[in-house]
């Protein structure tokens, strides 16, 4: 199985967490909020597009609201393949992080 990048992984999780309300703006805001990193709005579109092309996500054109000057939203929803991928990532992460302490300041400095 092909590994996902960290950003793809985060976006996939965001789409799952946002459920019915997952579209460009909400995904962007959610990721900024969690990571506290200044990513660009455009920066989330490429992973979204890639994940859709790979079949982890599906998308459909939804309604517009007045804040958007009448332009439609493109909603994303996670597919079965996407869910499987997330499960796999979770398993790997749990194995990898197993036993890692919360405060590991002294790592590598055993003097």
């Amino acid at each position: 199985m092909q590994m996902l990048t960290k950003l793809e992984e985060l976006i996939l999780l965001s789409v799952w967490r946002l459920g019915e309300n997952a579209y460009g703006t909400t995904v962007y805001k959610h990721i900024r909020q969690v990571t506290r990193k200044k990513i660009s709005l455009g920066g989330v579109y490429f992973p979204l597009e890639r994940l859709t092309n790979k079949g982890y996500l599906t998308s459909y054109i939804g309604e517009a609201n007045e804040n958007r000057r009448g332009l439609s939203k493109r909603y994303y929803r996670i597919t079965e393949k996407g869910t499987k991928a997330l499960n796999e990532i979770k398993r790997i992460n749990e194995v990898m992080w197993e036993g890692y302490p919360d405060f590991a300041f002294s790592a590598g400095k055993n003097t």
Binding site: Y23, G24, T25, Y28, K29, L41, G42, Y45, F46, E49, I61, A64, N65, N67, R68, R69, L71, S72, K73, R74
Partner: peptide
């Protein structure tokens, strides 16, 4: 840059924020 499609959801997102 981001290859927006027919209904311009991308520009819509920008407008919203």
């Amino acid at each position: 840059a981001y290859g927006d499609s027919e209904h311009f959801p991308l520009i819509g997102d920008f407008e919203e924020i």
